[in-house]
């Protein structure tokens, strides 16, 4: 190459590299803006809310006076709703995932189911609220109950559980299945004793992510008409006299953490906004902990499994 041509090429390269640097800086800045915004959110809530967090905050009912208001009915309600959601979504989601991976024939029916699941994952959560309002609350007559809310959220997270189950099952090599069949096992025995145990950690990850999403969901639960001011608890599931177990709580009115927070956020008084910050802080910690656990599980799995 002659000298002027070399100089020209070098200046082109230098220009290209300058753009590389500019873009790298823009990239870091964008990443930082995203992370710092969320850090600001977290710190803001912590600074405002932490002074309010005490034992009483967890053991008091909501109140007209901000200082003595607590989240007792909210966290109990959230827990109960989560129990219903988990108990419904986990078996159905896992069963659906197993069916699609292990049993489903390649036909239009299966295609319809698969397309459906993908589309359901993109349906806005408030639409699930409308479904629940029309179906669970009025058609099935469940009212504004823990059961109605739990079932709504179960439908909402079902696609997450199904997709996680399918991914976990797909990661199991065909040789595992063939080994089981070669020993004379039936399809169900293979699923029961091989597929399900091996895919359990993956399914668990999906369930945790789904529940973390469900616990923060506000819109569908507001839509079914959950009350925002609940100063009592549902009757406890365990009773002192026979039959010891009670399912009355399933049909009790309730409130949940995000609704309590919404209620406090919408109040004009600054004192209630402090409560909102405290409730938000606890809510974020809960979802972060659940998601963190799931992500940690997943990354650990990816590293440890090598069939």
């Amino acid at each position: 190459m002659d000298a002027p041509r070399v100089r020209e090429i070098r200046s082109v390269i230098a220009r290209g590299k300058r753009w590389d640097v500019v873009f790298a800086i823009v990239g870091i800045v964008c990443l930082m803006i995203g992370l710092l915004t969320v850090a600001a959110l977290f710190v803001d809530m912590a600074v405002k809310g932490l002074p309010r967090i005490s034992l009483e905050f967890f053991t008091n009912f909501p109140s007209r006076r901000a200082e003595s208001a607590g989240i007792l009915s909210a966290w109990v309600g959230s827990t109960l709703v989560m129990v219903v959601t988990a108990v419904t979504a986990v078996p159905i989601g896992a069963a659906a995932g197993v069916y699609l991976e292990e049993y489903a024939p390649r036909n239009w029916m299966t295609d319809v189911i698969e397309i459906n699941i993908t589309n359901l994952a993109g349906v806005p959560s408030i639409v699930y609220g409308l479904l629940a309002l029309g179906l669970f609350v009025y058609q099935f007559g469940l009212g504004q109950s823990v059961l109605a809310a739990g079932l709504t959220l179960a439908l909402l997270i079902l696609p997450v559980v199904i997709v996680a189950t399918r991914e976990a099952i797909r990661a199991i090599p065909a040789a595992m299945r063939e080994g089981s069949y070669a020993l004379g096992a039936t399809q169900w025995q293979t699923v029961r004793y091989h597929i399900l145990p091996y895919s359990m950690p993956g399914i668990l990850t999906g369930v945790i992510i789904g529940l973390a999403r469900a616990i923060g969901e506000t819109a569908p639960i507001i839509t079914i008409g959950a009350l925002t001011f609940i100063a009592f608890l549902p009757s406890p599931p365990f009773q002192p006299e026979p039959p010891f177990l009670s399912f009355e709580w399933l049909f009790a009115p309730f409130t949940v953490m995000p609704i309590q927070m919404f209620n406090w956020t919408s109040r004009p008084e600054a004192a209630f906004q402090v409560n909102a910050a405290a409730a938000g802080f606890i809510l974020v910690l809960m979802t972060l902990a659940m998601n963190g656990l799931a992500i940690w599980l997943r990354y650990r799995l990816r590293r440890n499994i090598n069939w």
Binding site: M1, I9, I13, G16, K17
Partner: peptide, 9 residues
């Protein structure tokens, strides 16, 4: 020597 210049040649 810049690898990009090398690759251009």
């Amino acid at each position: 020597v810049d690898p990009i210049e090398v690759r251009m040649r």
